[in-house]
Amino acid sequence: MTGAQDRQSGVSLPGGGDTPAVELRGVSFAYRPGVPVLSGVSLSADPGEFVAIAGPNGGGKTTLLRLVLGLERPLVGEVRVFGRPAGSRSRDRQIGYLPQRARLGGDAPVTVREIVSAGRLAPAGVTGPLRRRDREAVDRAIGRVGLEERASAPLRTLSGGLQQRALIAKALAGEPALLVLDEPTTGVDAESQESLGVLLEELRRELGVTILYVSHEFGAVEHVVRRLVLVRGGILFDGLPGDLPGVWHDPSHRH
């Protein structure tokens, strides 16, 4: 398999065809008038692609992600997800989203299975108990991240790396076509970061899920990701991580 084929992967992709999974065309955005966060951003990710979006804090990468999620609307330009305007709801093209420092409610203990089940809300509906099909999807998601043994454990008794895995399982429970992660390595030790990268690549290969991975440092996924986008107000770089000019290189990177 050549590199190019490998990048697109051979899996049957939800949607398929020529429609990009994520497409931004000439997008500009500002929270306050006169202070642009992003200007003239065009970016396209194919179904089944694993894209790492890096850049300095305040460079607009989280904003870019919020535009894709439909949580913000572009001032200029267009954002489409699987061919539809971002933010429009689609039952067959779920988005799994891991917010930054995932806010996990208050102080009450929440188990791994409870948090993952919450990720099954959109397909399962909000009323009544989970049906068998939905319970199976929850079990599959927990198995995917290797937390079967800890399914009944309260989340707070798990290490940072395992908590992050539980949250990925939550995002997977809805069987998403697009998985969006915002700074997923915060509070996760180096070893768990490596295995997080491996897990994500496994999900991409086996489930054909498109992954947008946003982080100010990309050491965790550098060895698995084939496309790196550097964002600072606009797109500074878009290509193989190895082709990144040395001056922009992530100092936290380890060989």
């Binding site: 779920q94 917010p99 806010r103 409870e114 948090i115 089940s117 919450a118 909000v126 108990p129």
Partner: peptide, 20 residues
């Protein structure tokens, strides 16, 4: 509505993005 209320409380933004 137990499951729905829990989902909205546990991860409001993630649930919103998923279409809940």
């Amino acid at each position: 509505l137990y499951r729905g209320l829990v989902g909205a409380v546990v991860d409001e933004e993630g649930s919103r993005v998923a279409g809940v």
